[in-house]
Write a protein that binds this DNA or RNA. Structure first.
Lengths: 181, 181
DNA sequence: GATGCTTACGTACAAACGTACGCTTCATGT
DNA sequence: ACATGAAGCGTACGTTTGTACGTAAGCATC
């Protein structure tokens, strides 16, 4: 009988990471203890040891996802020195789109669906949006920030669905229209 | 031994309807034959009799959902006699929002997530968006239609997440900005 | 190296799942 | 009234699921 990797401090984090990738591939519907365990290369027993149940694992996974994306968002905008650059940053956010491939977008949809059905975790969605709005308000008025934020979301979804991407030039024009430039 | 309702021509449709409401409440993850059967008040056996499997039931349910929403969309826009009315129709679409309560939005997210993971049914999403874009193009230029379509999506999502709705006045301003009015 | 305490794992179990299939019921033609 | 075929249901089966729990490994202390 052989026991391996008893000491493995990254394990918990690796499980969460694995959960995200399982979600991307199989959705929340297919995110089972066993599948995640295999993806993370940990024994099944580790699942119930590290997490209180599948829902609590999902909650942590989604928290990681939203935190990560919000950070990306913030960083991109913070780097902009003036309004013109900020506008261009927004264009970049939209066009570089789902921050890491199609899978990320799937994860985001699953997050939306899941958090809508779990009022206890509604903060995942609203907090994230508050953060992105706040990041935008460093450069724009609150009303403009609201409009841009919604626009980013909407364009990304449409870009994902219809394969025919809205060209950057057009995105730029929209951003200009929304920010009175 | 008692047998009931052998003759029940609406049964198939009722099952699909029930599937949608189960999805709203439990997500695709919790959409099981048994739960749907109970919701539709039909015996479990009817599930496999009327549908080839759970995925094929989901596909039909989502098709119904998207068709229904697209129709709503089209009808609202078709009723507008001129540009000004069309703009107002768009505002109405956004503000009256999820066409039938929070549950509808959950269903839509689940549809997005599901169809993204099922390439065979990607047409559900892209077809719907094509339809709504087409409806918009009766009144606006293609570029404006794309922008409005994305905007509608984005604002609705944000309205759902953050409880603090974007006021109609502001929506009206955005629509005006996007359509050069 | 023996002891005791913490950490982590293997495994077993009940519940819930999707699905197949034989049998009942009904409508129809005679 | 009866036969017959189609339609629809009840049930049972093999899998997969989440989770609990006894037990083994690691580690500090002596």
């Amino acid at each position: 009988m052989e026991r391996k990797r008893r000491h493995d401090p990254e394990r918990r984090a690796r499980i969460i990471e694995a959960a995200l990738s399982v979600i991307a591939e199989h959705g929340v519907a297919g995110c089972t203890h066993r599948r995640v365990a295999e993806a993370a290369d940990v024994p099944l027993g580790s699942m119930t040891y590290h997490f209180d149940g599948i829902d609590s694992l999902l909650a942590e996974a989604f928290a990681l996802l939203s935190g990560r994306i919000a950070e990306d968002y913030r960083a991109t905008l913070r780097a902009a020195p003036d309004i013109a650059a900020a506008r261009e940053a927004v264009v970049a956010l939209i066009c570089n789109g789902p921050w890491g491939g199609r899978g990320t977008m799937t994860q985001i949809f699953e997050l939306y669906a899941w958090s809508t059905r779990h009022p206890d975790h509604a903060g995942l969605m609203s907090g994230w949006m508050a953060q992105s709005r706040e990041a935008l308000e460093a450069h724009f008025t609150p009303a403009q920030a609201r409009a841009l934020d919604a626009m980013i979301e909407g364009v990304m979804i449409h870009n994902l669905a219809s394969a025919a991407l809205i060209p950057p030039e057009e995105v730029r024009a929209i951003v200009r229209a929304l920010t009175g430039g």
